[in-house]
Design a protein around this nucleic acid. Sequence first.
DNA 1: AGTAAAATATGATAAAAATCACATTTAAGA
DNA 2: TCTTAAATGTGATTTTTATCATATTTTACT
Lengths: 143, 143
Amino acid sequence: MFSNSTKYAIKAVLYLAVHSSEEQKIMIKDIAEPINVPKHYIAKILQALSKKDIISSTKGPKGGFYLTSDQLQTKVMQIIETVDGEERLNSCLLSLEKCNSDNPCSLHHLVFDEKNKINERLKMTILKDLRQHIMRGESILPL
Amino acid sequence: MFSNSTKYAIKAVLYLAVHSSEEQKIMIKDIAEPINVPKHYIAKILQALSKKDIISSTKGPKGGFYLTSDQLQTKVMQIIETVDGEERLNSCLLSLEKCNSDNPCSLHHLVFDEKNKINERLKMTILKDLRQHIMRGESILPL
DNA sequence: AGTAAAATATGATAAAAATCACATTTAAGA
DNA sequence: TCTTAAATGTGATTTTTATCATATTTTACT
Ligand code: FES
Ligand code: FES
């Protein structure tokens, strides 16, 4: 469903959501290891997210990555779109085109409503929500 | 959601479902072109499907690919599993593991029910159903 | 100012997925 | 039985995705 890069991105950002703050920055290697993602790979992804202002970073000693409280309001969908590009989630199951109810492919009616529901949730769920889930022990941040 | 190969496979099989029969076999090039898939690529996929008895074929002059009426009973899910492998649809959104409600990842609750519903439908929908849809003009076989 | 510790930029390599090419096998029809 | 038309098998090439490496920039601390 998601690319590898997006999976990694979500895991990393969620890790920051739980463990970081403006006073508690985290170095790349201390993110990569606990979420089980190659260090150099996640570095590239975090840099892209940082450039898009989805996460924050500072260079130099005592530097690292972190989330501001504003950034805890980021919607999950924003991360997905930033990494995978917008098209991916709205593409038709059978063609390259955008899914289109006026010209539905043969699988469209099997999936459209559910896919929509999922997309809606990804659009309204923010990092803070997921952090709360994790801190309550209702879900985990998998390896 | 699906790999390119699975998309192509479904389109090709659906094309056969609509246009072929034991008396009306279709050559690779006459499948590849209308569904807009590279000839050599779809050939490989069709060969795999043929070996798994999801479609039929005969060699030589007047040969080609076709579906028997038995094969019109094939479930969409069978095609997906044959091409992409079973794991893909049941894997967790964030990890390599199988999705597991007893140990849910942070996105699990956002998608589980809907993904399940989709999977159920893919498991109970057969090619004949989709063919009917297409022939009634309720859905299309996209390029 | 100088040094060291961090992210950043850029690019190289490896692995996987998609695509292309061709020689082999099978079967129909002359 | 010979020729030809089709799928089949095997493997090569290209493209995309994932991974690795390294030089540069920024910043804190001395
Ligand atoms: S048109 Fe294909 S999934 Fe909607
Ligand atoms: S455990 Fe991750 S999607 Fe179910």
